[in-house]
């Protein structure tokens, strides 16, 4: 069996591997959440964050676009009240709202026949419904990563789009290469989801992440 790291732990692991993760803070209570928001700048997003917590949107554990300390305190209090049995140690993750609109999904999976594979797809909430994804064996070199980007059916969405500049493909390729390197460096990792991978100012940023580890790792 396996278990998942918290979003915050997942992101720290990915940041250490060189992936672009936004600055975020964990807060144990409402007052700490408001202090974190003050320090990061408004508006902010709050999420309940703890091991084994997945499907946050479905459970109503994400609060977006909070513009002042009062709203942050209120929503943080509410989120902490939604902890279930076994989630007592969960905290509130405070991050600044990110710009941009285009969302990708990237990930790592260990295929039973081919071993570690990196995935890239059109993402966010529509990822599985669209199914526009492509895979490459890990580790990948930069040309492999470029090829993976080009393999998306709708790769043209990465061009200039509705007033946003074209995606920095080299930055996206570096992210994919780094993700592939994680597979070799951390054999205990069973899978990784970066979803969404938001394009902010042309570059990919990991807005949410889930790292799944083998039990006993």
């Amino acid at each position: 069996m396996s278990y998942t790291l918290s979003e915050h732990e997942s992101k720290r692991l990915l940041a250490d591997a060189g992936l672009p993760v936004p600055e975020e803070r964990l807060a144990a209570d409402a007052a700490a959440a408001a202090r974190a928001a003050d320090a990061l700048g408004y508006p902010v997003a709050l999420k309940l964050c703890g091991r084994g917590i997945a499907h946050k949107t479905e459970r109503g554990l994400v609060r977006l676009g909070l513009a002042d300390p009062e709203a942050v305190r209120r929503e943080a209090e509410d989120l902490l009240g939604l902890r279930r049995a076994g989630e007592e140690s969960a905290q509130v993750l405070v991050g600044r709202m990110a710009g941009g609109s285009r969302e990708l999904i990237a990930g790592l999976v260990r295929d039973p026949q081919f071993g570690p594979c990196v995935m890239l797809g059109l993402g966010g909430i529509f990822a599985e419904a669209l199914g526009d994804v492509a895979f490459a064996l890990a580790p990948l070199d930069p040309p492999d990563a470029e090829d993976l980007i080009g393999a998306l059916q709708h790769a043209h969405l990465l061009d200039a789009f509705r007033g946003e500049p074209p995606v920095d493909r080299a930055a996206l390729a570096r992210l994919l290469v780094a993700l592939g390197e994680v597979a070799a460096a951390r054999p205990e990792i069973r899978s990784i989801d970066l979803n969404p991978l938001r394009i902010v100012d042309a570059r990919p940023v990991v807005l949410d992440a889930l790292v799944e580890l083998e039990d006993g790792a």
Partner: peptide, 26 residues
């Protein structure tokens, strides 16, 4: 359909066919 533990989106999307397609492409 592979018998795959898919607790992740990536795992759920990693069908035999999609992965094999990537292998052939590269």
């Amino acid at each position: 359909q592979g018998q795959r533990a898919a607790s992740s989106h990536t795992g759920a999307l990693a069908s035999d066919d999609a992965v094999f397609d990537g292998v052939c492409r590269l």
